[in-house]
Computed example of a mutant assay.
Amino acid sequence: MLTILDKYILKRYLVTFLGMLMLFVPIGIMANLAEKVGKIIDNEAPLSEVIVFYGNFTLVIGNLLLPIFLFLSIIFFTSKLASNTEIVAILSSGVSYWRFLRPYLIGATLVAILIFMMGMFIVPNASIGYNEFDYKYFKKGRKVQVTNNIFNQLNENDYIYVSSFDPNRKNGTNFTYEHFGEDKKLDYKISASSIRWIEKDSIYRLTNYVKRNLENNVEQIHTKRRLDTLFTFKIEDLTPISYVAETKNLFELNEFIEDQKSKGASNINAYVLVKYKRWALPIAAFVLTIIAVAVSSVKRRGGMGLNLAFGIGVAFIYIFFDKVFGTLAEQSGFSPLLAVLLPNLIFGVFAVYLLMKAKR
C-alpha cells in the first residue's frame, strides 16, 4: 500500500523523468537533423520517409538512453529535495533510509518494465526502418568493413565458405561449396578463386571455377575460367546484415541466434551481445537509481550543480565501459555475457558503497 510519502516521491520521480525525456529527445532530434540535413537534401529523401525515420530514431536512441535520462532526473529532483531540507525532515520524523528509498525502487521497477517491453518488442520493429533509412541515405557509398573467414551451414547437407567478403562490391574470395549426400559422404565440391553477385541478372559469377564430383569413388573434375550460375543460398548467407539482430524481437532473436550457431557463424558474439544488452538495460535502471539517490540525497555546499556534474561524469564513464566491453566481445573472444555484466557489476558495487556512505 502506497503511503503519502511514496506517492509524493514517486510523482516527482516520474514527472521529472518524463520532463527530462520531453526536453532532451527533441534536442537529440534537432542535433541529428542539423548534422544530416545536407545528406537528406543531396539524396532527395522524401519528407514522409524523413518523418518516419525520426519517429523510429526517437524510439531506438531514446530506449538506449532511458537509464541515463532516469539517472539525471533523479539527481535533479532529489538534489532539490535535499536543498529544501525535505529529506532531513523525512528522516528526522523516524523514517529509515531504506524506507525512504522504497518509492525510488518502485519507480525504477516501472521504468525497467518500460525499457524491457520497448527493447524486446517495440524498438526492434522501429530499428528496421531506422537502419534502412540510415544505410540508404546517410551511409550511401560509404566503405563497409570486409568480413573474413565466413563459414555457413545452409542445411544438413550443404556448406559454404569464403575467406573474405566485401559487401560494397558483393564479391568474395576463395569460395567453397560442399554438398553431402544422405550417407554423409561428400557428393561434390565447388570451388572458385572469387564469387560475385551480379544484381541486374540475379546470378553468381564464379572465377576459376572447379567442380569435383565423386561417383563410385571415382573423381570427375570440371573446370571453367568463368561461370555464371544460380545457387539456392542468398547473398546475405555470405555476410549477414550487421544490424539484423537489432531488428528481431525477443523470440525471433533467440531463434536467429540458435540458427546462426548451428550454421557456425563467425560473428555470433555480435548477435548474443545484442540479446544480453536488452536484459541488462532494465538492471541498469536499478543500479543508476541507487547511485543517483545516494549522491543527491546528501546536502552539499556545491548544491544541485555539483551533483549534476558528478552525475554526468558517472553517465559518461558508464557508457565508456559499456562500449569498451561491447567492442571486446564483438572483435575478440571476450564473453558477451561478461561484457554486459561487468559494467553493471562494477557500478553495482559502487552503488552499494555510495548508499552505505549516504546512510551513515
Rank of each mutant, 00 (worst) to 15 (best):
T3M: 00
I4A: 04
K7E: 01
L14E: 04
L14A: 11
T16R: 11
F17I: 11
G19R: 04
L33W: 04
K39S: 02
N43K: 06
E44A: 08
P46C: 01
Y54A: 00
I68Y: 00
S73T: 03
F76L: 13
K80R: 13
L81C: 11
A82R: 13
T85W: 00
V88R: 05
S92M: 01
R102F: 10
L105T: 04
L105K: 13
L110I: 15
I115M: 12
M117A: 12
F121S: 06
V123A: 10
V123D: 01
V123L: 00
V123F: 03
F138P: 01
K140W: 09
Q145H: 12
T147K: 15
N149G: 11
Q153Y: 05
E156L: 15
E156A: 15
D158I: 09
G172Y: 02
I203Q: 14
N217H: 08
T223D: 05
D228I: 14
A245C: 07
T247K: 03
F256T: 13
E258M: 11
E258R: 11
S262E: 10
I268K: 09
V274K: 09
L281P: 07
V287C: 12
I290L: 13
A292G: 14
V295E: 12
K299H: 09
R300S: 15
R301C: 00
L308S: 02
A315W: 10
Y318V: 10
F320H: 06
K323R: 08
K323A: 03
A329H: 06
E330N: 01
P336F: 04
P343L: 02
F350V: 05
L355K: 04
R360A: 01
R360C: 07
